[in-house]
Design a protein around this nucleic acid. Structure first.
Length: 475
RNA sequence: GUUCCCAUCGUCUAACGGUUAGGACAUCACCCUUUCACGGUGAGUAUAGGGGUUCGAAUCCCCUUGGGAACGCCA
């Protein structure tokens, strides 16, 4: 049997990092066995589902490259099918109508909690042989409940957590259709997974307690339950649960922070899963090596520092042509148009070693594409003082005379200037950095000037010379 | 409250009864150096606690403690 997995988010918010990892695991597992992966939008709660959230989920999945093999599937488009199954179950006696009002149920739960019991439906409308049901109240639209078997136990052999046994008497009769006829999550999941031939249900471990009921429903429908893999949640760096108020970010925010999709995926795949000592994986390697035997059952914290490290590894080793479009996006995000200026690929090649993210790279590369707006105060005070005046003058003279604007020749001029003035290389290079980039940090100076180009270089050196001359008397 | 899950360096993890408990991130030190980085070398840091089982336990079992989840006409 070919593997079919699914990622089934409810569209009530963006695609967060935990969901992305669950989706990734599902995707990898399917691909590993040459199977299919599908994305299903669980939008039966029409009050909370929004189109904006649906769009955000698709956007995130697409950016990560986790594409569905079956297009878009919405539960709200399958209501006819759910109604059909509910009718079947009513007919077969595996489901029944319950006329208890919400108030009645609230009161029941309150009583149970007062008695320190687990709140659960008491089966007041559950038909049993010889049992007399209450009179049907007028004007009440009944809900439909699943008639859960009450004997024995349900065994879940989870691929990650191992064997988990639930006693059947812990399981109450859950509602599968609301008073208005709209089916509920636990029921829709079961019908969908069955109809879509899902072989492996990979989801967050907050669903573990739903699983025995779902297994019972699948069995009541005469189908075979899929395999389950319940993935632990991702915690914030302080060990607290990620929430909207507390550090939960959508995957697109990681794009804004300068991560590439591959880097995020690589970080996520290693969060809870391992393959010996290997830290870095290509997408192909992830697919070839992913397994549930090495997925941890315990929750993991999201460590931004390590994520940055992974990001850096990708920036350093990736094909510059692949990164260039994302780099372009970041520059434009910062209001810089990279059309006129050095080739993005060349700038990336110079910056990739010293930047952990594309955001950082864009910030540090703006000066290649736009005029600098001023000097870093400390750097200017240190490097553009009186001492810099002869240095800059010498450089301008040497560089103006340069016919061949290449790194090697530029390097020669910088060296010659230092030698002529009896200075160390750093004493010459630092003023140039500040003059040209606005601050004392840049790629190697010869590369920087080559990329910047002759015109901009000389203009900025001249401006810095004027600045230094003005600052000199005070110094 | 009830049920269920989880527990190795600060963090992510390796170990599938026998290792000086390994690697990575982070930290610190040194080297390299034209700034920032990269890179190199090295250091410190862990089996939550208590009982068993066993010749031998991080590993299997039980208890404690500490985290977490679920218990909706939410998903």
């Amino acid at each position: 049997m070919s593997v079919v997995t699914r990622f089934a988010p409810s569209p009530t918010g963006f695609l967060h990092i935990g969901g992305a990892r669950t989706a990734l695991f599902s995707y990898l597992y399917a691909k590993r066995f040459g199977g299919k992966f599908l994305l299903r939008i669980e939008d039966t709660d029409r009050e909370r589902s929004t189109q904006a959230a649906v769009d955000a989920i698709f956007e995130g999945m697409q950016w990560l490259g986790l594409t569905s093999d079956f297009g878009e599937i919405y539960q709200t488009q399958r209501f006819d099918r759910y109604a059909e199954v509910i009718a079947q179950m009513l007919e077969a006696g595996t489901a029944y109508h319950c006329y208890a009002s919400r108030e009645e149920l609230d009161a029941m739960r309150a009583e149970q909690q007062a008695r320190k019991e687990k709140p659960r439906y008491d089966g007041r409308w559950r038909p049993e042989p010889g049992k007399v049901l209450p009179p049907i109240p007028e004007g009440v639209k009944p809900v439909v409940r699943f008639k859960n078997p009450q004997e024995g136990e349900v065994v879940l052999n989870d691929l990650i957590k191992g064997k988990i046994v639930f006693s059947s008497d812990e399981l109450d009769d859950l509602i599968i259709a609301r008073g208005d006829g709209v089916p509920t999550y636990n029921f829709c999941v079961v019908v969908d997974d069955m109809d879509m031939g899902i072989t492996h249900v990979i989801r967050g471990d907050d669903h573990v307690n739903n699983t025995p009921r779902q297994i019972n429903m699948i069995k009541a429908l005469g189908a075979t339950p899929p395999q389950y893999a319940h993935v632990s949640m991702i915690l914030g760096s302080d060990g607290a649960k990620l929430s909207k108020r507390h550090g939960a970010l959508g995957v697109m925010e990681y794009r804004a922070m300068g991560f590439t999709p591959d880097a995020i995926l690589n970080y996520l795949v290693r969060l809870g899963w391992s393959h010996g000592d290997q830290e870095l994986f290509t997408r192909e390697e992830m697919i070839a090596k992913f397994d549930f035997e090495h997925v941890s059952a315990s929750p993991a914290r999201f460590d931004m520092e390590k994520a940055y490290w992974v990001s850096h590894q990708y920036l350093k080793s990736a094909d510059v042509a692949v990164i260039a479009p994302e780099f372009d996006w970041h520059l434009r995000q910062q209001g810089v148009d990279p059309t006129n200026g050095p080739k993005l690929e060349d700038v990336i090649a110079q910056q990739r070693e010293r930047c952990r993210t594309l955001l950082e790279m864009a910030e540090k590369s703006k000066f290649f594409y736009a005029d600098i707006t001023g000097y870093n105060e400390k750097d200017a005070a240190k490097h553009l003082g009186a001492k810099a005046v002869p240095v800059l003058a010498g450089l301008i003279e040497g560089l103006t005379a340069l016919s061949d604007w290449q790194a090697e020749a530029i390097h020669g001029v910088v060296h010659a200037t230092a030698e002529k003035l009896g200075l160390k290389l750093g004493d010459v290079a630092q003023p140039i950095r500040v003059a040209v980039s606005g601050a004392a940090v840049s790629p190697p100076i010869d590369q920087t000037l080559m990329l910047l180009g002759r015109t901009a270089t000389l203009a900025r050196l001249a401006a810095a010379a004027a600045f230094a001359a003005k600052a000199a008397p005070a110094a």
